[in-house]
Lab assay of single mutants.
Amino acid sequence: RHRTIFTDEQLEALENLFQETKYPDVGTREQLARKVHLREEKVEVWFKNRRAKWRR
């Protein structure tokens, strides 16, 4: 597996949602994934990693 490289637009959308909710539900993740052309799984893992970074 290779590392996903997120575009600035994707990161902006992910960060904006993170400010709203640290734990978006699957529907919200799917909606964002469609909007920025990512797989929902990638969005889910990004949030998991972003929460870990936020806790540190």
Score class of each variant (00 low, 15 high):
1 R>Q: 14
1 R>I: 09
1 R>M: 13
1 R>T: 07
1 R>C: 15
1 R>K: 09
1 R>S: 13
2 H>P: 10
2 H>Q: 15
2 H>N: 14
2 H>D: 12
2 H>W: 06
3 R>I: 13
3 R>M: 14
4 T>G: 13
4 T>P: 11
4 T>N: 14
5 I>P: 12
5 I>Y: 05
5 I>T: 14
5 I>Q: 14
5 I>K: 11
5 I>S: 14
6 F>T: 08
6 F>G: 05
6 F>H: 08
6 F>K: 02
6 F>I: 11
6 F>V: 13
6 F>D: 05
7 T>C: 03
7 T>N: 06
7 T>W: 00
8 D>V: 08
8 D>M: 11
8 D>C: 07
8 D>N: 13
8 D>E: 13
8 D>S: 12
8 D>A: 13
9 E>L: 08
9 E>V: 08
9 E>R: 11
9 E>Y: 06
9 E>F: 06
10 Q>S: 02
10 Q>D: 07
10 Q>T: 01
11 L>I: 08
11 L>P: 01
11 L>H: 10
12 E>G: 10
12 E>M: 15
12 E>N: 05
12 E>A: 12
13 A>P: 06
14 L>K: 01
14 L>T: 04
14 L>V: 00
14 L>N: 05
14 L>W: 01
14 L>S: 01
14 L>G: 02
15 E>M: 00
15 E>K: 12
16 N>M: 09
16 N>R: 13
16 N>T: 09
17 L>W: 02
17 L>N: 00
17 L>Q: 09
17 L>S: 06
18 F>T: 02
18 F>G: 02
18 F>R: 01
18 F>S: 00
18 F>I: 06
18 F>D: 00
19 Q>R: 09
19 Q>N: 12
19 Q>K: 08
19 Q>T: 09
19 Q>G: 06
20 E>T: 12
20 E>V: 10
20 E>D: 10
20 E>M: 09
21 T>Q: 14
21 T>A: 06
21 T>H: 12
21 T>R: 04
21 T>V: 13
22 K>H: 03
22 K>E: 08
22 K>W: 06
22 K>T: 04
22 K>V: 08
23 Y>I: 02
24 P>R: 02
24 P>D: 03
24 P>V: 01
24 P>F: 02
25 D>V: 05
25 D>I: 04
25 D>R: 01
25 D>C: 02
25 D>W: 00
25 D>T: 07
26 V>A: 12
26 V>G: 06
26 V>Y: 09
26 V>Q: 08
26 V>S: 11
26 V>M: 10
26 V>L: 14
27 G>F: 15
27 G>I: 06
27 G>D: 10
28 T>M: 07
28 T>G: 04
28 T>R: 11
29 R>I: 15
29 R>M: 13
29 R>H: 06
29 R>F: 05
29 R>Y: 09
29 R>D: 01
30 E>V: 11
30 E>Y: 09
30 E>T: 09
31 Q>N: 15
31 Q>T: 13
32 L>S: 00
33 A>E: 00
33 A>M: 00
33 A>F: 01
33 A>H: 03
33 A>C: 10
34 R>C: 06
34 R>V: 09
34 R>I: 12
35 K>N: 03
35 K>C: 04
35 K>F: 03
35 K>S: 12
36 V>S: 04
36 V>L: 12
36 V>D: 06
36 V>A: 07
36 V>E: 02
36 V>R: 00
36 V>P: 00
36 V>W: 15
37 H>Q: 09
37 H>A: 13
37 H>W: 02
37 H>K: 09
37 H>P: 00
37 H>D: 12
37 H>G: 14
38 L>F: 13
38 L>Q: 01
38 L>Y: 02
39 R>H: 11
39 R>K: 06
39 R>C: 15
39 R>T: 15
39 R>N: 15
40 E>H: 06
40 E>L: 13
40 E>W: 12
40 E>K: 13
41 E>L: 03
41 E>A: 09
41 E>F: 01
41 E>D: 13
41 E>M: 00
42 K>Q: 15
42 K>C: 10
42 K>I: 14
42 K>N: 15
42 K>S: 15
43 V>R: 03
43 V>H: 00
44 E>L: 11
44 E>R: 12
44 E>N: 06
44 E>P: 02
45 V>Q: 13
45 V>K: 13
45 V>L: 13
45 V>H: 07
45 V>G: 12
45 V>D: 15
46 W>N: 00
46 W>D: 01
46 W>P: 02
46 W>F: 01
46 W>Q: 00
46 W>S: 00
46 W>Y: 03
46 W>K: 04
46 W>I: 00
47 F>C: 02
47 F>I: 04
47 F>L: 04
47 F>H: 03
47 F>T: 02
48 K>H: 06
48 K>A: 13
48 K>P: 00
48 K>M: 10
48 K>V: 10
48 K>R: 12
48 K>C: 09
48 K>F: 03
48 K>G: 08
49 N>E: 15
49 N>F: 08
49 N>S: 12
49 N>R: 07
50 R>G: 00
50 R>Y: 05
50 R>E: 08
50 R>Q: 08
51 R>P: 04
51 R>T: 01
51 R>Y: 01
51 R>Q: 05
51 R>W: 04
52 A>R: 04
52 A>Q: 04
52 A>M: 13
52 A>H: 04
52 A>S: 10
53 K>V: 14
53 K>N: 08
53 K>C: 09
53 K>M: 09
53 K>R: 11
53 K>L: 14
53 K>S: 11
54 W>V: 10
54 W>Q: 10
54 W>M: 12
54 W>T: 11
55 R>L: 13
55 R>K: 13
55 R>T: 04
55 R>D: 06
55 R>W: 06
55 R>Y: 14
